[in-house]
Write a protein that binds this DNA or RNA. Structure first.
Length: 570
RNA sequence: CGGGACGUGGCGCAGCCAGGUAGCGCACCUGCUUUGGGAGCAGGGGGUCGGGAGUUCAAAUCUCCCCGUCCCGACCA
């Protein structure tokens, strides 16, 4: 391939609104262009990388017995109504109406469709099945961002396993977990598997694969000691007990706290209480129902934990008016003491605590001497607090680390939600009907691509791992008119191609600096420079993009040297 | 959806406050010189100033409405 004939529109400046490194570099390197928010065109170079990632995933899926499908991306509403998700998916699903007036959806995932296909299977003997596809998913994201990292239209490898029983599901799940580990290794991604919440897909065991990066949108808690790792939405820690003063026999004492609206203010006030001796009272609306959520004063709520604990679909902080109507006070003076007409859910860090301070449900007043279990009608205890860096690992006690990360994959056990909804059964060895159990597993290809860039770049540009690079080698001809250079370059490019190396010949009539800079920006792993000096001296320059290492090679050794480099890094 | 910022050739920006000829750098085309780290000179092409109303003799500039884009928070591969 000749660079002069390829469409590689490199840019000196990144678009002004790009922030993430991968976004800037993919645009500057001529890999992607934006059509609208959340929708990107993959240019030839971008597609090459995308295809390489796809191939790696495909190989690993096939290795665990996956069978590739290609399902429609437009679905009739009826299928989604059957699973109950036509409504549950809300605004995130793109919907349209065809000329006959039939409602349609653009698929955001394919449990329903695969289940429909699976319905044809009637025997346990056909199981297990692992089915997958690479398909464009459409999701009307509230906020697309960071180039390819979060978009509304993207290719996902989604797979689904069908087993007769839990043990079978465990095996399919493990197979996927191992496949994913291999996939990320081959992509050059240092992904950690973390415990996760399964979101609105429904399911139990849920593992996300996370790549540490400041461009990520998730926080994970990780332990270097034992390898514990969990999404912050799920992570727990061991916190030390706090020695409370002896319990007073009498009821809580109300005292004035004029102007005090925050935990911090109350902590500083004379006669106040340190944050860890306060009860934080949050008023949340769970599916329309006002609920008091109690945490230790110095702890933060993880809303996802509240969702997981209660099964609520819709969770949001209550509006100030609703709070005042229910409790008679404004945020800053709220408490749960004596409240009996609202659900109260509390974090276990409050369990057994005494002599605590909290709002009195009267503006500018708090109450002290609260014995949580004696004075508050807690309806339910559930882990709700956000883990903080430095707290003890729940497994081994070492301090936890908190890291920002990109979610590059998610696998989880779905259960029988869809097979039940679609009335799917298979006959077992006793001729009894059994409802198969499903697992569901996804990797966003474009996101993985962006994650590779996030973790493989420098000031000069991208530095692709050989496994996904758009080309393995660029031959840079220093001076395009120098006949001997060009002849040698063409010959070597040919030989490299025959040896299975993907090579692009930079034959552009440009100054060498431009070509060097472009090669580095685009991120091709190896560069062979051919110019008058080298041709005459009988020594060409070979540069390794990732390390900057330069070495001289004789022209007749160049092919062998490059083949070896490519093979050892592949 | 809440908060903030922005919209001027392909990309990066100035001009707007104080209304009057659309400008700069990069990129692009032609020619000459140049060519081992983003060349120089000369000539040239390309812009409904996001859209629509309004004010005005006159609007990129002022007013109103709409649209779009980005960033921070609630959602997910």
């Amino acid at each position: 391939m000749r660079w002069s004939q390829l469409f590689i529109p490199t840019l000196r400046d990144a678009p002004g609104d790009a922030e993430a490194a991968s976004h800037k570099l993919l645009v500057r390197g001529g890999y992607i262009r934006q059509l609208q928010s959340g929708h990107y065109s993959l240019l030839p170079l971008g597609l090459r990388v995308h295809e390489k990632i796809t191939s790696i995933i495909r190989e690993e899926m096939n290795r665990i017995g996956g069978q590739e499908f290609l399902l429609p991306c437009m679905h009739p509403a009826t299928v989604w109504r059957t699973s109950g998700r036509w409504d549950a998916m809300g605004d995130e699903m793109f919907r349209l109406v065809d000329r006959k007036g039939a409602e349609q959806a653009l698929g955001m995932t394919h449990e329903e469709i695969f289940s429909t296909v699976f319905a044809e299977i009637g025997s346990y003997r056909a199981l297990p099945q692992i089915w997958y596809q690479f398909q464009i998913k459409f999701r009307d994201e509230p906020r697309p961002k960071a180039g390819l990292l979060r978009v509304r239209e993207f290719t996902m490898k989604d797979s689904y396993s069908f087993d007769v029983d839990e043990a079978g599901l465990d095996a399919s799940f493990d197979a996927h977990q191992h496949a994913y580990v291999r996939i990320y290794e081959r992509l050059g991604l240092d992904a950690v598997a973390v415990e996760a919440s399964s979101g609105n897909m429904g399911g139990s065991d849920s593992v996300e694969f996370m790549v540490a990066s400041p461009a990520g949108e998730d926080d994970i808690a990780r332990c270097d000691g034992c390898g514990y790792a969990a999404n912050i939405e799920r992570a727990t820690s061991t916190i030390s007990d706090i020695a409370d003063p002896p319990t007073a026999d009498d009821a809580p004492v109300r005292f004035p706290t004029p102007g005090v609206r925050t935990i911090a203010q109350l902590a500083e006030m004379d006669g106040g209480a340190p944050a860890d001796r306060q009860i934080k009272t949050l008023v949340m609306v769970l599916d329309g129902r006002l609920t008091l959520v109690l945490l230790r004063g110095d702890h933060n709520l993880v809303e996802q934990k509240l969702v997981d604990a209660t099964g609520a679909i819709d969770v949001a902080p209550a509006e100030a008016d609703a709070i005042h109507a229910a409790l008679g006070a404004h945020p800053g003076s709220l408490g749960a003491v004596g409240v009996t007409d609202l659900d109260i859910i509390a974090d276990p860090a409050l369990r057994g605590r005494t002599a605590m301070t909290t709002g009195a449900n009267e503006d500018d007043f708090h109450v002290g001497g609260v014995d949580v279990e004696r004075d508050i009608a807690v309806g339910r205890w559930a882990d709700l607090r956000e883990v903080k860096a430095g707290e003890a690992c729940p497994e081994c006690g070492q301090p936890l680390l908190i890291e920002r990360a990109i979610e590059v994959g998610h696998i989880f056990k779905l259960g029988r939600k869809y097979t039940e909804a679609f009335g799917i059964t298979v006959l077992d060895e006793n001729s009894e009907a059994r409802v198969p159990i499903m697992g569901c597993y996804g990797i966003g290809v474009g996101r993985a691509l962006a994650a590779v860039v996030e973790t493989h770049h420098d000031e000069q540009g991208i530095s692709w791992p050989v496994s996904v690079a758009p080309f393995h080698v660029v031959i840079t001809v220093v001076k395009a008119e120098h006949r001997e250079s060009m002849q040698m370059a063409e010959r070597l490019a040919d030989d490299l191609s025959h040896a299975g190396v993907e090579v692009v010949l930079d034959d552009r009539d440009a100054r060498p600096g431009v070509k060097f800079a472009d090669a580095e920006l685009v991120g091709i792993p190896f560069r062979l420079t051919i110019g008058p000096n080298g041709v005459e001296a009988g020594e060409l320059e070979l540069v390794v993009r990732s390390t900057g290492e330069k070495r001289g090679v004789a022209p007749d050794q160049a092919v062998a040297a490059l083949v070896e480099l490519v093979d050892t890094h592949r």
